[in-house]
């Protein structure tokens, strides 16, 4: 009999987080070697549809816990339930998207099961029968490989966009097993009393394209052309710390060592010099474009394509060219 892989399916307000599907994709790959089933763990309230979605994305089996105590992610009930399921079913591996919630859940479960959790993996491969994880360290200046030699299950959180999202197949069949939560509401210390959603726009960590502005945009209004470009591309807006510290744009948009780590297909840096701490957050982007009037700016070392010039001329020109080409 093969060895199973658990994948935690994260949801917010009933919608799945993309990194969970990427994790299912990664699990399918690993299961070719391990030979067991891919088991999705779907916890929430009124999330029956997510179980079907998980199967379409590649799960063989779904553990579905549908309960008001699980409506919002909270580490206590979620970790207790995932650890309980893991004890009962003894999976070889647990994969979790390395989102805010996933980065809490993985290590919490690791403590409960006295096992290892490798954070923020960008690759997972079998080498001589050992599962080896690659992860960036020192702000991406170095890479490391890690294994979990003895303890089981081996837990890995996987960096968003590091693994391909599978194409869903509505025709796939799978088994759905209903499970009960472990904790009752009165046993859970944390109470969620409010939520203020960040207004509009695409989330940075999920975005396939990011357009970022730095000190070079000169002021809060300098983000207007950046936003217009982002809009035609369906992109998220990012920023350097200099722009955030100046108060031109909220911290939520900051990319870099003390901001978000992103890995989009396309990153367009406008008026950003490319300090090492900014690079830390975006260097793994697939294609990087820099628009900067200083030909010596370090960002041109990292970028694939560069335009040396005034962003206030080139960014609107790019927006216009894209509108024409993309027919918008």
């Amino acid at each position: 009999m093969g060895k199973d892989i658990f994948v935690w399916v994260e949801q917010f307000h009933g919608q799945a987080a993309i990194p969970s599907w990427e994790a299912i994709g990664a699990a399918r790959q690993l299961s070719e070697t391990l030979g067991g089933q891919v088991c999705a763990c779907v916890f929430g309230e009124n999330v029956g549809d997510l179980a079907k979605e998980a199967i379409a994305y590649g799960a063989d089996k779904v553990f579905l816990a549908d309960d008001p105590t699980l409506a919002d992610f909270r580490v206590e009930p979620y970790a207790a339930l995932l650890a309980h399921l893991a004890k009962e079913h003894q999976p070889e591996v647990i994969l979790i998207g390395a989102t805010s919630r996933g980065r809490d859940l993985g290590p919490a479960v690791a403590v409960d099961l006295e096992t290892g959790c490798v954070a923020d993996c960008t690759a997972l491969e079998f080498e001589d029968g050992k599962l080896v994880a690659t992860r960036p360290i020192y702000a991406g200046k170095l890479l490391s490989t890690c294994t979990i030699p003895e303890r089981r299950p081996a837990i890995f959180t996987v960096r968003p966009r590091a693994f391909a999202k599978p194409d869903p197949d509505e025709g796939r069949q799978g088994e759905v097993v209903s499970v009960e939560p472990v904790l009752k509401e009165e046993e859970i210390a944390c109470k969620v009393t409010g939520f203020e959603e960040t207004e509009g726009g695409v989330s940075l960590t999920d975005a396939a394209i990011i357009v970022s502005g730095g000190r070079g945009v000169g002021g809060p209004e300098g983000f207007e052309p950046i936003r217009e470009l982002a809009e035609v591309l369906g992109a998220a807006v990012g920023a350097s710390r200099a722009a955030v510290d100046a108060g031109w744009i909220p911290y939520e948009h900051q990319v870099g060592q003390t901001g978000k780590t992103v890995s989009p297909d396309l990153y367009i840096a406008c008026g950003i010099s490319g300090a090492i701490q900014h690079q830390a957050g975006m260097r793994t982007s697939k294609v990087i474009v820099a628009i900067n009037k200083d030909p010596e700016a370090p960002i041109f070392q990292l970028a694939h394509y560069g335009i040396v010039g005034d962003l206030f001329k080139y960014v609107p020109a790019l927006t216009k060219a894209l509108k024409e080409r993309l027919g918008k």
């Binding site: 290892g116 959790c117 081996a154 030909p295 990292l302 560069g306 010039g309 020109a317």
Partner: peptide, 27 residues
């Protein structure tokens, strides 16, 4: 510990820097 660090190495370097786009006008 559960996790063992196996290897640490520099990321693959990209050669050459950016391809600079030269043109007469922004358009």
């Amino acid at each position: 510990s559960g996790v063992r660090w196996e290897r640490i190495f520099p990321p693959p370097v990209r050669e050459g820097g950016a391809e600079i786009i030269e043109a007469d006008t922004p358009e």
